[in-house]
Nucleic acid binder design. Structure first.
Lengths: 224, 224
DNA sequence: CTAAATTGTGAAAAAACTCCGATAAAATCG
DNA sequence: CGATTTTATCGGAGTTTTTTCACAATTTAG
């Protein structure tokens, strides 16, 4: 993990306070003492920075301006540090893509909690691995595991399996399968599907029986 | 869009207030007057509900309990409605997966702004399409586009390209490439990589030059 | 500049994949 | 139960993908 956070505030004391707490929590910190420096540091560390703590009131370039400029090119999470309870500002900011507010004065605990919450939310591994009765499918990685063991599936096999599991418990007609897994205009032998089903079942081993045959219709994936 | 929001609060007046504002903004509203009802409504509308506004203080089952139970099975965004400024609660809640707090009393504007901010954040199609100098890769869909035009890449070509772009600006040795794109124990001709590189470059057209040859080492993807 | 090393390229061999058609097996119906 | 319909399975033909190999082009070193 070890996320990198850019702290932007004109008060050195405030920066130090924030920095110390976040470092104690294992974060890496970059600092900037005004808006211009913030943009500079940001542009040089785009890929590294995971979150920005941005003070609103600053000399040279205020927090809103910095926010706007950064939002032109990046969706990095930004927490604004504001004077207490300025509703107008909050509304203003959400539209611009502020992720969170923290009002000064704040307790370091709150700070850390919010930072972690936001990072958790955004860092949240976008990788989604879905489990269908022990058949794990990682669509991003295009991999399938059964009981933890990776399976080698050809393109058609993979797509057919994905189509079946994504329609778990739904009986799929051969027509539907052909139209969805094959090109729309494919006009082939309907035994083709059977052939692939056979191979998938075989590769799934014991779990092959989750692919049910629905006589007169087609197939259905059902964990039972 | 038209998101559905579950409003849980024991005060009918409060529910009505929230409901009216959110409906005015085009949301669909479900209501529950206590924790138990909330769970009931939730379990019956799991797939429909996009966000939950959850009061903390309620008879029968309080907000925290509801939160915990819902988090057992769902990541639906939850905004807690709390009495003003209870730090302890906030810390407590972030760990449990609270997405946001709104302190009573709040202005309807703030409410709507936060709801919209959260929905914007979470509804954000999980589908991620990354752009590397005009080469767009959708890993979930396993598609590559160059300047908007889809490319047909074979398995190896695709994986090799993904490996290169994900290590943008890093020179990758042939060894490393073999170990990562091919099976770990692959023991083939080293011209194999070149062959695929050639095909990829060709398919990328003008952008093929982003794949740089690093003599004596291997290749590097670099947009320049 | 020349020789050596490394990479690019195209063609062809090898491997993998997809699809088809024939036959076997199973389920259903009368 | 026997006939009929439907699905399972198998082998192999036709494709596509992957790999290999020989040679050309390029870069680097001396």
């Amino acid at each position: 993990m070890n996320s990198c956070i850019l702290v932007v505030d004109d008060e050195a004391r405030m920066r130090k306070l924030i920095k110390d707490f976040l470092i104690a929590k294992g974060f890496t910190i970059l600092e900037a003492e005004d808006g211009e420096k913030a943009l500079e540091v940001f542009s040089q560390n785009k890929n590294k920075i995971n979150l920005i703590l941005l003070d609103v009131m600053m000399p040279k370039l205020d927090g809103w301006s910095v926010l706007r400029q950064i939002r032109q090119e990046s969706k990095v999470p930004i927490i604004m540090l504001t004077a207490r309870g300025e509703e107008q500002d909050e509304l203003f900011g959400f539209e611009l893509g502020v992720d969170e507010y923290i009002s000064k004065p704040f307790s370091p605990k709150i700070l850390v909690a919010r930072v972690e919450a936001i990072l958790k939310r955004t860092n949240q591994d976008t990788r989604e691995i879905k489990d269908y009765g022990g058949i794990e499918i990682d669509k991003e990685g295009r991999t399938v595991k059964v009981d933890g063991k990776p399976l080698e599936l050809s393109l058609r096999e993979y797509e057919l399996l994905v189509y079946l599991v994504e329609n778990e418990n739904i009986a799929l007609s051969r027509d539907k399968i052909l139209n969805n897994v094959w090109n729309y205009d494919y006009y082939g032998d309907s035994r083709t599907i059977d052939s692939h089903i056979k191979k998938i079942r075989h590769k799934l081993g014991k779990k092959g029986k989750y692919i049910k045959t629905i006589r007169g219709v087609g197939y259905k994936f059902e964990v039972k």
